[in-house]
Design a protein around this nucleic acid. Structure first.
Length: 471
RNA sequence: GGCCCUAUCGUCUAACGGUUAGGACAUCGCCUUUUCAAGGCGGUAAUCAGAGUUCGAUUCUCUGUAGGGUCACCA
């Protein structure tokens, strides 16, 4: 079965995993799942300088959180000896040797400084720098202390097809004698990712658009190796929210794990990311992961970059919170509730509010309910309802206190509080003249559950004391 | 600078060459409600510019403009 789809996500452990990387992983994963294929996780750790301790574990943690499970790779293993490039060095040497034997690879005789000179000179002459113009006439024997370079044979215009971008081509300027193996013995990305893709039988290479200019080099290498290249699918960039720059770590691209910490559900982040650069033929916007797998198509990936949009993410998250079963919802609420708020009475209150009104966008908002256990701070102007005079508000609150004092402590339920307050509120020009200040005095929040239920939880004494304080 | 890519409401996007250019987020207005939020209903808002092909162009071609990417012993 040679046409089984095999995709891979191949991050390098050089820092945290940001949302752009996660989207690349997602698309590869979706495509493999849709085709009942194999999704491989491969760690590209050939740059020892930039490697960050713990980065690999972090990537794995993020993938696990969002549920992008891999069929082969670290932890789960697979037919390969290892899925870390640093542990596959012999393999790359073997491929390098076949290129040397064919006369298609040679040691770079220059020092790094000398190459830098060439580059500077080309720049001064306003010409593109091409190492191959300085290629030595005869090749020495490679002893591993010098970089090994690839000898580009066909200096021509390469044409190829990309599932997303269509027919692409690039002239000979894109081709150069690039380095296969560095002087430290580690291979370069340009070389080892191709060896790995061949060895792992990758059928679809899904990666960022920034690789398009390098693809002619890859094609030349596939040619030299006598291997048919896989299908390429390049992804448009995710743009930062302010400008039109590629979303990078510099302009605030966040660690994907921060979204977990802010209370986004993994399925919501996945849903949002899927829609950022891809769109189904229908108008559907809210997807379960299963639905995404079903409708995902590489052909419908967008060519132009998409701007990150927090508001839409929030909306999608809210929609997913509303879809949670009551069991899942309770579990989530419990997790997000600060420990001192895990009171029996509160969980059903929030559960009801969310399932009935669905007004929580991020689970972290649940943590804001700590006004239930401590007197909130707020600006006194907030107590004013529209243009009502402060004196009016004051007297309304005084009336409310009087009414509430008449309720016995053991009958201080939300129903009774509501009845008492509504009786007063109905005599006013607008109910808000009473209900707004009461709600604010109790919660101190712009948006909160209704005042009756808060009063119920706070109890008679605390409720009245907060109202008095407001006055 | 060389090479390469892209271009529809503010944003994400839909539209076999023929549509009153559709949807969603955001925004605005109204309704509902128990204040806010949430919910319901509705409004404002887009084919980068100029040629060409065609009976007809958002769609095809060219030029321009604007944006982006890439030119490492990084991936």
């Amino acid at each position: 079965m040679e046409n089984k789809v095999v995709t891979r996500f191949a991050p390098s452990p050089t820092g945290f995993m940001h949302v752009g990387n996660l989207r690349t992983a997602l698309y590869s994963w979706l495509w493999a799942k849709k085709n009942n294929g194999t999704f491989i996780l491969r760690i590209e750790d050939t740059d020892k300088e930039r490697e960050v301790a713990g980065a690999e574990e972090h990537i794995i943690k993020v993938l696990k959180w969002v549920g992008l499970n891999w069929d082969e790779g670290p932890i789960v293993g697979g037919p390969q000896n290892s899925y870390k490039q640093s542990e596959r060095l012999d393999l790359y040497k073997k491929y390098a040797q076949t290129l040397i034997d064919k006369g298609l690879a040679y040691p770079d005789p220059y020092t790094a400084e000398e190459v830098e000179e060439f580059r500077k000179k080309a720049e001064a002459d306003k010409k593109a720098f091409l190492y191959r113009e300085h290629r030595p006439e005869t090749f020495g024997v490679w002893d591993g202390t010098k970089p090994l370079r690839f000898k580009i044979e066909n200096i021509k215009r390469y044409e190829w097809n990309d599932v997303v971008f269509g027919d692409l081509s690039a002239g000979p300027e894109a081709l150069d004698d690039f380095i296969l193996i560095k002087s430290d013995g580690y291979p370069t990305y340009n070389f080892c990712h191709i060896v790995d893709d061949i060895e792992m039988n990758i059928t679809h290479v899904i990666r960022g658009q920034e690789y398009i200019p390098s693809i002619p080099k890859f094609l030349a290498l596939y040619e030299a190796l006598g291997v048919k290249p896989p299908i390429f699918a390049c992804l448009p960039h995710i743009m930062g929210k302010d400008g039109h720059k590629k979303l990078g770590k510099r302009d605030g691209a966040k660690d994907a794990f921060e979204y977990k910490e802010e209370g986004y559900l993994p399925e919501a982040l996945i849903n949002f990311l899927a829609l950022l650069g891809w769109h189904p033929s229908s108008d559907q916007e809210v997807f379960t992961v299963e639905e995404l797998i079903k409708s995902f198509e590489l052909e419908r990936i967008q060519k132009s970059g998409a701007q990150w949009n927090d508001e839409k993410l929030d909306w999608i998250n809210k929609e997913h919170i509303k879809k949670l079963s009551s069991e899942e919802l309770q579990k989530n609420i419990f997790e997000w509730l600060p420990e001192n708020l895990r009171i029996q009475k509160i969980i059903p209150l929030i559960t009801e509010r969310i399932s009935k009104f669905g007004d929580i966008k991020k689970m972290i908002e649940i943590g804001e309910l700590d006004f239930l256990v401590k007197q909130p701070e707020y600006a006194k102007e907030k107590l004013i309802f529209k243009n009502t005079a402060p004196e009016k508000i004051k007297s309304n609150l005084q009336q409310a206190i009087k009414a509430l004092e008449n309720i016995a402590e053991n009958e201080f339920t939300s129903e009774n509080v509501k009845a008492a307050l509504m009786q007063i509120a109905d005599t006013l020009e607008s109910r808000g003249e009473l209900l707004h200040p009461v709600r604010f005095a109790l919660s101190g929040l712009d948006k909160s559950p209704d005042p009756f239920i808060i009063a119920d939880i706070l109890g008679k004494n605390e409720t009245i004391s907060r109202l008095q304080k407001a006055i």
